[in-house]
Nucleic acid binder design. Structure first.
Length: 270
DNA sequence: ACTTTAGCCTGTCGGC
DNA sequence: TGCCGACAGGCTAAAG
Protein backbone atom coordinates (compact mmCIF):
# COMPACT_ATOMS: atom_id res chain seq x y z
CA UNK A 1 0.00 0.00 0.00
CA UNK A 2 2.01 2.83 1.30
CA UNK A 3 4.32 4.57 -1.10
CA UNK A 4 7.06 7.02 -0.17
CA UNK A 5 4.83 9.83 1.18
CA UNK A 6 2.94 7.48 3.47
CA UNK A 7 6.16 5.95 4.77
CA UNK A 8 7.74 9.38 5.24
CA UNK A 9 4.65 10.61 7.06
CA UNK A 10 4.70 7.60 9.36
CA UNK A 11 8.41 7.96 9.99
CA UNK A 12 8.32 11.58 11.02
CA UNK A 13 5.23 11.02 13.15
CA UNK A 14 6.85 8.32 15.29
CA UNK A 15 10.40 9.72 15.41
CA UNK A 16 10.12 12.13 18.35
CA UNK A 17 8.31 9.63 20.54
CA UNK A 18 10.91 6.90 19.89
CA UNK A 19 14.33 8.53 19.83
CA UNK A 20 16.24 8.14 23.11
CA UNK A 21 13.58 5.83 24.55
CA UNK A 22 14.36 2.26 25.49
CA UNK A 23 12.45 -0.85 24.48
CA UNK A 24 10.95 -2.27 27.65
CA UNK A 25 8.92 -5.16 26.31
CA UNK A 26 8.09 -6.74 22.96
CA UNK A 27 4.98 -8.74 22.15
CA UNK A 28 4.83 -10.71 18.90
CA UNK A 29 1.37 -12.15 18.26
CA UNK A 30 1.92 -13.14 14.64
CA UNK A 31 5.50 -13.84 13.48
CA UNK A 32 4.46 -14.86 9.96
CA UNK A 33 4.66 -11.77 7.80
CA UNK A 34 6.26 -11.50 4.34
CA UNK A 35 9.23 -13.20 5.98
CA UNK A 36 9.12 -14.81 9.44
CA UNK A 37 10.13 -12.45 12.25
CA UNK A 38 13.48 -13.19 13.92
CA UNK A 39 12.22 -13.70 17.47
CA UNK A 40 15.70 -14.02 18.96
CA UNK A 41 16.64 -10.67 17.49
CA UNK A 42 13.47 -9.13 18.94
CA UNK A 43 14.44 -10.42 22.42
CA UNK A 44 17.84 -8.80 22.12
CA UNK A 45 16.12 -5.42 21.78
CA UNK A 46 15.10 -5.54 25.43
CA UNK A 47 16.46 -2.47 27.25
CA UNK A 48 18.11 -1.18 24.09
CA UNK A 49 17.86 2.57 23.38
CA UNK A 50 16.60 3.89 20.04
CA UNK A 51 19.18 6.20 18.54
CA UNK A 52 17.43 7.29 15.33
CA UNK A 53 14.40 6.76 13.08
CA UNK A 54 14.95 7.09 9.34
CA UNK A 55 13.48 6.15 5.98
CA UNK A 56 15.18 4.51 3.00
CA UNK A 57 12.91 3.90 0.00
CA UNK A 58 9.69 2.49 1.48
CA UNK A 59 11.51 1.02 4.49
CA UNK A 60 11.40 2.49 8.00
CA UNK A 61 14.73 2.10 9.77
CA UNK A 62 14.76 2.16 13.57
CA UNK A 63 18.36 2.43 14.65
CA UNK A 64 19.81 0.90 17.82
CA UNK A 65 23.43 0.82 18.95
CA UNK A 66 23.46 -2.93 18.22
CA UNK A 67 21.72 -2.83 14.83
CA UNK A 68 18.64 -1.74 12.92
CA UNK A 69 15.00 -2.73 12.96
CA UNK A 70 13.68 -2.58 9.39
CA UNK A 71 9.95 -2.25 8.84
CA UNK A 72 8.13 -2.42 5.52
CA UNK A 73 4.39 -1.73 5.51
CA UNK A 74 3.64 -3.84 2.44
CA UNK A 75 0.15 -3.15 1.08
CA UNK A 76 -1.86 -2.81 4.27
CA UNK A 77 0.64 -2.25 7.08
CA UNK A 78 0.30 0.52 9.64
CA UNK A 79 2.38 1.74 12.60
CA UNK A 80 0.64 3.47 15.48
CA UNK A 81 1.82 5.13 18.66
CA UNK A 82 -0.59 4.14 21.40
CA UNK A 83 -0.90 4.00 25.14
CA UNK A 84 0.39 0.68 26.43
CA UNK A 85 -3.03 -0.31 27.78
CA UNK A 86 -4.73 -0.07 24.36
CA UNK A 87 -6.46 -3.39 23.64
CA UNK A 88 -5.07 -5.32 20.70
CA UNK A 89 -7.49 -5.99 17.86
CA UNK A 90 -7.34 -8.43 14.97
CA UNK A 91 -4.17 -8.07 12.88
CA UNK A 92 -2.26 -6.18 15.59
CA UNK A 93 0.84 -8.33 15.12
CA UNK A 94 3.61 -6.66 17.14
CA UNK A 95 3.97 -4.22 20.05
CA UNK A 96 7.21 -2.54 21.04
CA UNK A 97 6.62 -1.10 24.51
CA UNK A 98 8.79 1.85 25.52
CA UNK A 99 10.06 2.95 28.91
CA UNK A 100 7.17 5.43 29.21
CA UNK A 101 3.40 5.15 28.65
CA UNK A 102 3.68 4.51 24.93
CA UNK A 103 4.15 1.62 22.56
CA UNK A 104 4.66 1.28 18.84
CA UNK A 105 2.12 -1.15 17.33
CA UNK A 106 2.32 -2.85 13.93
CA UNK A 107 -1.01 -3.72 12.30
CA UNK A 108 -1.21 -5.47 8.92
CA UNK A 109 -4.28 -7.40 7.69
CA UNK A 110 -2.73 -8.77 4.52
CA UNK A 111 0.70 -9.50 6.06
CA UNK A 112 2.60 -8.43 2.94
CA UNK A 113 4.74 -6.26 5.18
CA UNK A 114 8.01 -7.20 6.83
CA UNK A 115 9.87 -6.71 10.10
CA UNK A 116 13.56 -7.51 9.71
CA UNK A 117 16.61 -7.22 11.90
CA UNK A 118 20.04 -6.20 10.64
CA UNK A 119 23.30 -6.02 12.59
CA UNK A 120 24.70 -4.41 9.47
CA UNK A 121 22.37 -2.73 6.97
CA UNK A 122 24.80 -3.47 4.14
CA UNK A 123 24.07 -7.18 4.49
CA UNK A 124 20.32 -6.94 3.96
CA UNK A 125 19.38 -8.13 0.50
CA UNK A 126 16.14 -6.11 0.44
CA UNK A 127 18.13 -2.86 0.71
CA UNK A 128 20.74 -3.73 -1.87
CA UNK A 129 20.20 -2.68 -5.48
CA UNK A 130 17.80 0.11 -4.48
CA UNK A 131 17.86 3.07 -6.83
CA UNK A 132 18.29 6.72 -5.82
CA UNK A 133 15.84 8.56 -3.61
CA UNK A 134 13.43 10.49 -5.86
CA UNK A 135 13.90 13.72 -3.89
CA UNK A 136 17.69 13.59 -4.05
CA UNK A 137 19.98 15.19 -6.61
CA UNK A 138 20.92 11.73 -7.88
CA UNK A 139 17.48 11.47 -9.44
CA UNK A 140 17.60 13.96 -12.29
CA UNK A 141 16.66 14.30 -15.94
CA UNK A 142 19.92 13.03 -17.42
CA UNK A 143 19.88 9.99 -15.10
CA UNK A 144 16.30 9.11 -16.06
CA UNK A 145 16.93 9.71 -19.76
CA UNK A 146 19.87 7.33 -19.68
CA UNK A 147 17.73 4.66 -18.02
CA UNK A 148 14.87 5.14 -20.48
CA UNK A 149 17.26 4.64 -23.39
CA UNK A 150 18.40 1.29 -22.04
CA UNK A 151 15.01 -0.06 -20.96
CA UNK A 152 12.53 -2.11 -22.93
CA UNK A 153 9.58 -1.82 -20.55
CA UNK A 154 6.74 0.77 -20.56
CA UNK A 155 7.59 4.04 -18.83
CA UNK A 156 5.18 3.36 -15.97
CA UNK A 157 6.91 0.05 -15.19
CA UNK A 158 10.27 1.82 -15.33
CA UNK A 159 9.44 4.49 -12.74
CA UNK A 160 7.87 1.87 -10.46
CA UNK A 161 11.04 -0.23 -10.66
CA UNK A 162 12.78 0.29 -7.29
CA UNK A 163 16.16 -0.31 -8.93
CA UNK A 164 15.60 2.77 -11.10
CA UNK A 165 14.09 5.05 -8.47
CA UNK A 166 12.63 4.18 -5.07
CA UNK A 167 9.37 5.15 -3.43
CA UNK A 168 7.13 5.50 -6.48
CA UNK A 169 4.21 3.08 -6.38
CA UNK A 170 1.11 2.68 -8.48
CA UNK A 171 -0.79 5.80 -7.45
CA UNK A 172 2.07 8.28 -7.66
CA UNK A 173 3.33 6.76 -10.91
CA UNK A 174 -0.08 7.24 -12.51
CA UNK A 175 -0.48 10.78 -11.14
CA UNK A 176 3.03 11.88 -12.14
CA UNK A 177 2.59 10.59 -15.69
CA UNK A 178 -0.69 12.48 -16.00
CA UNK A 179 0.91 15.75 -14.91
CA UNK A 180 3.87 15.16 -17.24
CA UNK A 181 1.40 14.42 -20.10
CA UNK A 182 3.04 11.07 -20.84
CA UNK A 183 1.06 7.93 -21.68
CA UNK A 184 1.92 5.21 -19.12
CA UNK A 185 2.06 2.54 -21.86
CA UNK A 186 4.71 4.33 -23.92
CA UNK A 187 7.89 2.33 -24.41
CA UNK A 188 10.54 3.97 -22.20
CA UNK A 189 12.86 4.34 -25.18
CA UNK A 190 10.48 6.72 -26.96
CA UNK A 191 10.71 9.44 -24.29
CA UNK A 192 12.60 12.58 -25.25
CA UNK A 193 15.03 14.19 -22.82
CA UNK A 194 12.51 17.03 -22.41
CA UNK A 195 9.86 14.51 -21.38
CA UNK A 196 12.30 12.99 -18.89
CA UNK A 197 12.88 16.43 -17.42
CA UNK A 198 9.13 16.94 -17.09
CA UNK A 199 8.67 13.51 -15.53
CA UNK A 200 11.38 14.01 -12.91
CA UNK A 201 9.83 17.36 -12.03
CA UNK A 202 6.30 15.98 -11.71
CA UNK A 203 7.39 12.93 -9.69
CA UNK A 204 9.18 15.23 -7.26
CA UNK A 205 6.36 17.74 -6.97
CA UNK A 206 3.70 15.04 -6.55
CA UNK A 207 5.69 13.31 -3.81
CA UNK A 208 6.48 16.57 -2.01
CA UNK A 209 2.88 17.70 -2.11
CA UNK A 210 1.67 14.29 -0.90
CA UNK A 211 4.09 14.41 2.03
CA UNK A 212 2.78 17.85 2.96
CA UNK A 213 -0.79 16.51 2.85
CA UNK A 214 0.07 13.54 5.06
CA UNK A 215 -0.09 10.96 2.27
CA UNK A 216 -3.02 9.41 0.45
CA UNK A 217 -5.81 7.55 2.22
CA UNK A 218 -7.81 5.24 -0.01
CA UNK A 219 -8.81 2.68 2.56
CA UNK A 220 -6.14 1.38 4.90
CA UNK A 221 -3.68 4.19 5.37
CA UNK A 222 -3.87 6.45 8.37
CA UNK A 223 -1.20 8.69 9.77
CA UNK A 224 0.30 7.63 13.10
CA UNK A 225 -1.95 10.22 14.80
CA UNK A 226 -5.02 8.45 13.39
CA UNK A 227 -5.84 11.09 10.78
CA UNK A 228 -6.28 10.11 7.14
CA UNK A 229 -3.93 11.41 4.45
CA UNK A 230 -5.37 14.34 2.57
CA UNK A 231 -3.65 13.82 -0.77
CA UNK A 232 -6.64 11.70 -1.90
CA UNK A 233 -8.44 14.88 -2.91
CA UNK A 234 -5.51 15.90 -5.11
CA UNK A 235 -5.71 12.77 -7.29
CA UNK A 236 -6.36 13.62 -10.93
CA UNK A 237 -6.66 10.23 -12.61
CA UNK A 238 -6.21 7.39 -10.11
CA UNK A 239 -9.66 5.94 -9.39
CA UNK A 240 -11.25 8.34 -11.90
CA UNK A 241 -12.10 5.87 -14.66
CA UNK A 242 -14.88 7.23 -16.88
CA UNK A 243 -14.79 10.67 -15.27
CA UNK A 244 -13.89 13.72 -17.36
CA UNK A 245 -10.20 14.65 -17.49
CA UNK A 246 -9.65 17.76 -15.37
CA UNK A 247 -7.73 19.36 -18.25
CA UNK A 248 -9.75 18.46 -21.38
CA UNK A 249 -12.97 16.66 -20.24
CA UNK A 250 -12.14 13.48 -22.19
CA UNK A 251 -13.19 10.43 -20.12
CA UNK A 252 -10.30 8.88 -18.17
CA UNK A 253 -9.37 5.38 -19.32
CA UNK A 254 -8.45 2.55 -16.98
CA UNK A 255 -6.41 -0.38 -18.24
CA UNK A 256 -4.08 -2.91 -16.67
CA UNK A 257 -0.33 -2.85 -16.89
CA UNK A 258 1.66 -5.49 -15.06
CA UNK A 259 -1.61 -6.47 -13.46
CA UNK A 260 -2.02 -3.02 -11.87
CA UNK A 261 -4.80 -0.52 -12.42
CA UNK A 262 -3.46 2.13 -14.77
CA UNK A 263 -5.46 5.29 -15.42
CA UNK A 264 -4.75 8.00 -17.96
CA UNK A 265 -6.29 10.61 -20.24
CA UNK A 266 -6.10 9.34 -23.84
CA UNK A 267 -6.04 12.90 -25.19
CA UNK A 268 -3.65 14.69 -22.81
CA UNK A 269 -1.17 11.85 -22.38
CA UNK A 270 0.67 11.05 -25.59
C1' DA B 1 20.34 -9.55 -18.45
C1' DC B 2 15.89 -8.03 -18.84
C1' DT B 3 10.72 -8.22 -18.61
C1' DT B 4 6.52 -10.37 -17.32
C1' DT B 5 3.75 -13.28 -14.43
C1' DA B 6 2.11 -15.58 -10.33
C1' DG B 7 1.66 -15.57 -5.70
C1' DC B 8 1.99 -14.20 -0.96
C1' DC B 9 -2.68 -12.79 2.51
C1' DT B 10 -7.21 -10.74 4.09
C1' DG B 11 -11.04 -7.73 3.39
C1' DT B 12 -14.39 -5.54 0.56
C1' DC B 13 -17.35 -4.77 -3.15
C1' DG B 14 -20.31 -5.80 -7.14
C1' DG B 15 -22.96 -9.14 -9.69
C1' DC B 16 -25.95 -12.89 -9.73
C1' DT C 1 -29.25 -12.61 2.37
C1' DG C 2 -25.40 -15.40 0.53
C1' DC C 3 -21.92 -17.02 -2.49
C1' DC C 4 -18.22 -16.13 -5.84
C1' DG C 5 -14.90 -13.79 -8.34
C1' DA C 6 -12.27 -9.68 -8.96
C1' DC C 7 -9.56 -6.46 -7.00
C1' DA C 8 -6.58 -3.60 -3.57
C1' DG C 9 -1.46 1.23 -2.65
C1' DG C 10 4.35 -3.96 -2.88
C1' DC C 11 7.75 -7.02 -3.63
C1' DT C 12 10.04 -11.38 -4.82
C1' DA C 13 10.86 -15.71 -7.04
C1' DA C 14 10.08 -18.13 -11.02
C1' DA C 15 9.11 -18.28 -15.78
C1' DG C 16 9.55 -16.47 -20.31
Amino acid sequence: MPELPEVETTCSAIRTALVNKKIEKIIVRQPQLRWPIDLKAMKRLHNQPISAVNRRAKYILIQFPIGTLIIHLGMSGRLCLLNKDTQAVKHDHIDWQLNDDLMLRYHDPRRFGAVLWAKDLNHIKQLQHLGPEPLSLDFNASYLFEKTQKARCPIKALIMNQKIVVGVGNIYAVESLFLAKINPLRPSKTLSSQECTALVTTIQSVLKKAIQQGGTTLKDFYQANGQPGYFSQELNVYGHEGQPCKACKTPIIQTRLQNRATCYCPKCQK
